[in-house]
């Protein structure tokens, strides 16, 4: 699924990565626990999370996660936006809740890495 499609489906506000909207993500992962992201997320994934701190960006960097979606209307800080820009990671924020967001993306064909 293209990042552009994720952004449209979730009616999300984009903070970084305007030029990367045509990149593909291969699967989705949703989690607030970064240690679990480091244990289970797959390559080239989109991560949906309600956790907002710089370690979310660093975790994404280590796991080659290309796109981050903050759910429940949470907004990244300036420091996080800068970190993400330097690492070519797309950040967006949606007002939808985690479960709803995952359901919408799954219905649209995005799968989890273990499916």
């Amino acid at each position: 699924m293209k990042i552009r499609e994720i952004s449209q489906l979730l009616d999300a506000k984009l903070y970084t990565g305007e030029e990367m909207l045509d990149r593909e993500v291969h699967n989705g992962f949703s989690c607030d626990l970064m240690s679990d992201v480091l244990a289970y997320a797959e390559n080239e994934a989109v991560l949906l999370t309600g956790l907002v701190n710089p370690q979310v960006i660093r975790t994404a960097e280590m796991m080659d996660i290309v796109c981050l979606v903050f759910v429940r209307g949470k907004e990244p800080t300036e420091a996080m936006i800068k970190l993400a820009e330097e690492r070519s990671i797309v950040i967006m924020s949606t007002d939808k809740r985690m479960f709803t967001s995952c359901g919408i993306l799954h219905d649209a064909g995005l799968k989890s890495g273990d499916e």
């Binding site: 970064m34 240690s35 370690q55």
Partner: peptide, 15 residues
């Protein structure tokens, strides 16, 4: 609260 300390650090390193 910062998303760590779930007891996965050393197991992840081993993995």
């Amino acid at each position: 609260g910062l998303g760590f300390g779930a007891g996965m650090g050393l197991p992840n390193i081993k993995k």
